[in-house]
Design a protein around this nucleic acid. Structure first.
Length: 735
DNA sequence: CCTTAGTCATTTTTT
DNA sequence: ATGACTAAGG
């Protein structure tokens, strides 16, 4: 292990310029495990990039020996740019990418040790759902009872925990069903020479665990490993990291447990604790100075997150000054929320207080974007929408990608299903069914059979089909085989163009309508992207396309408000932030209400949203909400009650605050029943005059604490003696 | 084999 | 309210 020479510290100045003491400490940390606990806006990307630059430029580590992993391509790209800015070209060879992309590369290189080929394709979320559905149907089960989505979620969880189908433990009948689906699902993937997202991690972790020779090769290579957003790692990723760092033990991780919002994806912020235990000699460095937000915004964030009981306290501070108070507003419904957002933005822009691009509107679920979009459209204002109907989710894009995937990997039955009759060429369900059965009988993949049919009547398989079917299949097979023949000599763009030409795709999609025009425009955009992969080739193109995240699709150069979910907002910052739909059932989401840990995650989600704001934070909730077309009354979010009124501007409603006594105690109850027993104090005293919303004025006779609640005996003028729960009833104390 | 009308569930969050 | 999926006609 190398120790850096302190005598040449002066040379490190470049990489330390402009850093605060804690950041410097992190960048200059000795070799060995390092855990950086970085609050929002504390400059963690800075620390990571400077650390890399420091390692290469000062400590003399070869870029080839460094691995840096992130969760989104956007983060990876940004880091790469910033490292290059610090070092120039000398960062070449550095392995920097997302977990998934890094794994994809390793797997392609090491495919010989694994049950798939190097030209495997990556199945996206849509594909995953489809094959889960197919697997359930194959077993003969009802997809209404066993929803593909929820079954796949369990499979995904299993994979994230490095559980293969054969290790899947069965305790209930449902488990047994899932196990069987999982077996089929995985077989389907392998038969198609395909991997899903989780497989990328699963197989890499498997490879490193089971193959010491390979593991050592990588573990020796990566003298330094750096990890961004460490709190978002799941077990597979954690295992990956511990294996890769087993030799040099120079693992530098940056994270913030308070920003852990991917539990449902298997992420486990406890990995932060695990890290400290596993690497007991780890240096721990805290980054607590926030450079992003005003004090008021920071205080608001703290007031929300502080209620999470299991968190380690962090004291965030800023030098930015108090700033503007938070605006909290009650709206009639979600429609009005949208109008308010637009009016506020338009107003501030008109007054020259801000640019349209300085605004972000954040929400819990993608469905909420629709009303906003409509409102922007009616107002005639441009906006940029992140995620939701992403580019790569468009039908025409998926079609083209499926063609390319099939050409790259003829075993990809799923893609074949998609394209074989798109545009229509007379290959319907019947023909398709016979293609499948005969493929099964002859022990070939459908793609291979199709290729065998390409030669026409000479083919030994020709007579197994009806004349009509054989003719149509053969015609497509000829096209298909032609593409494959030229696959390796053509660039991705050229392959794409031959597909477009040979299939007459343009005529199919561009039917003269506006929609058709749009679709064709999307194809043109895809062509442009493909054009960038002349050097890297088809594999790289398909891989990037499969692994783009929502965040990656944000275009920076648009001067318009950004509409995005709270999840995609992580890692970003905006001068002015709106968070809409702050209602119970939305944030916290109704599916998380039952579970304490999920409630905590919802709270973190709000925390993430709040801490995106640099200057102005606007929080909106509504009294009513459109649910499946019906207007329903809704409650304000319980989290609002935790924000001190002193942080809110005068226009903010006060009644939310009045409810806080109730909300607060409810939270406490959820959280720590034991410790809060003694903490609950009586709010009322005998002799006190109170006003009840329904029964009017009364006088307190007696009061006691019982089951986390205060039971008050009150004599009302209107109805006489009543026992009242302080948690349920709204009582005003009369002075 | 493709279009159409009717039924139905749908709302987390995403690499 | 909207879209995905299923069952009947061109």
């Amino acid at each position: 292990m190398t120790r850096y020479n302190p005598a040449v510290t002066i040379l490190s100045m470049d990489f330390l310029a402009g850093l605060n003491p804690q950041q410097k400490k992190a960048v200059q940390s000795d070799p060995g495990p390092v855990l950086v606990l970085a609050g929002p806006g504390s400059g963690k990307t800075r620390v990571l990039t400077h650390k890399i630059a420091y390692l290469i430029g000062f400590a003399g580590v070869k870029p080839y020996h460094i691995l840096a992993v992130t969760f989104t391509n956007k983060a990876a790209k940004e880091m790469k740019n910033r490292v290059e800015l610090l070092l120039g070209k000398s960062s070449r060879g550095l392995m920097l990418g997302t977990f998934h992309a890094t794994c994809a590369k390793i797997l392609r290189r090491e495919a010989e040790h694994l049950p798939f080929n190097a030209n495997y394709v990556i199945f996206d979320a849509d594909d995953q759902r489809k094959i889960t559905k197919q697997a359930i149907l194959d077993i003969g089960l009802d997809i209404k009872q066993y929803k593909p989505g929820s079954i796949h979620a369990v499979i995904s969880q299993a994979k994230n925990n490095l559980t293969f189908p054969e290790d899947f433990s069965v305790n209930t009948y449902r488990d047994e069903v899932i196990r069987r689906v999982y077996v089929r699902y995985q077989n389907y993937l392998l038969a198609s020479n395909a991997l899903d997202f989780d497989d990328l991690l699963l197989w890499t972790a498997f490879l490193l665990e089971e193959n010491p020779a390979v593991r050592d090769r990588y573990a020796r290579r990566f003298e330094h490993i750096l990890v961004d957003e460490f709190q978002d790692t799941n077990f597979a990723q954690y295992t990956l990291l511990t294996n890769l760092s087993v030799f040099h033990r120079n693992i530098f991780v940056v994270g913030d447990a308070d920003q852990s919002i991917y539990r449902w994806r298997g992420a486990d912020y406890q990995n932060v604790l695990r890290f400290e235990e596993y690497f007991s000699d780890a240096q721990v460095i805290m980054l607590e100075q926030n450079y992003r937000s005003t004090q008021i915004i920071l205080d608001t964030a703290m007031s929300v997150i502080d209620r999470n009981p299991t968190r380690k306290p962090k004291k965030l501070f800023t030098m930015r000054g108090k700033g503007q108070k938070v605006i909290l507003r009650e709206m009639y419904d979600d429609r009005e929320e949208a109008v308010y957002v637009i009016n506020t933005i338009a107003g501030m822009v008109a007054q020259g207080k801000a640019q349209p691009g300085d605004f972000a509107v954040m929400y819990r679920v993608n469905a909420q974007s629709r009303i906003l979009e409509e409102a922007f459209l009616t107002a005639g204002l441009p906006y940029r929408l992140v995620g939701a109907q992403r580019f790569y989710g468009r039908r025409e894009i998926k079609d083209l990608i499926a063609y390319l995937r099939l050409i790259r990997n003829p075993k990809d039955d799923l893609s074949l299903y998609r394209v074989i009759n798109t545009p229509p060429r007379g290959i319907g369900t019947k023909t398709l069914a016979s293609l499948k059965t005969i493929a099964l009988k002859t022990n070939m993949s459908m793609g291979d059979l199709l290729l065998a049919l390409a030669i026409g009547e000479e083919s030994p398989y020709w007579n197994m089909f009806s004349k009509r079917a054989a003719t149509n299949l053969s015609r497509f097979g000829r096209m298909f085989s032609l593409w494959i023949t030229h696959r390796d000599e053509l660039s991705p763009l050229e392959i794409m163009d031959s597909v477009l030409d040979d299939t007459g795709y343009r005529d199919y999609i561009d039917d003269g309508t506006d929609e058709g025009k749009d679709r064709w425009d999307n194809i043109i955009e895809l062509r442009r992207l493909a054009g960038e992969y002349r050097e890297q080739g088809l594999d790289a193109f398909l891989e990037t396309v499969a692994l783009v995240s929502d965040q990656d699709t944000i275009e920076d150069d648009v001067n318009a408000p950004t509409l995005l979910t709270l999840h995609t907002a992580k890692g970003l910052e905006f001068s002015n932030v709106f968070i809409i739909g702050l209602n119970d059932g939305i944030l916290p989401h109704s599916r998380s209400l039952e579970d304490q840990e999920e409630l905590e995650e919802e709270r973190r989600l709000l925390y993430v949203g709040i801490t995106r704001a640099k200057n102005l934070l606007v929080l909106l909730y509504s009294l009513n909400r459109n649910v499946f077309g019906y207007i329903e009354p809704v409650e304000p979010s319980r989290f609002l009650a935790d924000i001190p009124i002193t942080l809110l501007d005068e226009g903010s409603p006060g009644f939310v605050i009045q409810q806080s006594a109730f909300k607060r105690r409810e939270d406490k109850w959820d959280v720590k029943p034991l410790s809060s027993v003694g903490l609950l104090e009586k709010k009322y005293k005998p002799g006190m005059h109170v006003v009840h919303a329904q029964w009017g004025e009364g006088v307190v006779l007696n009061t006691r604490i019982q089951d986390e609640d205060e039971i008050v005996d009150i004599f009302f003028e209107s109805v006489g003696l009543k026992k009242v729960s302080a948690a349920v009833a709204k009582l005003d104390i009369r002075k």
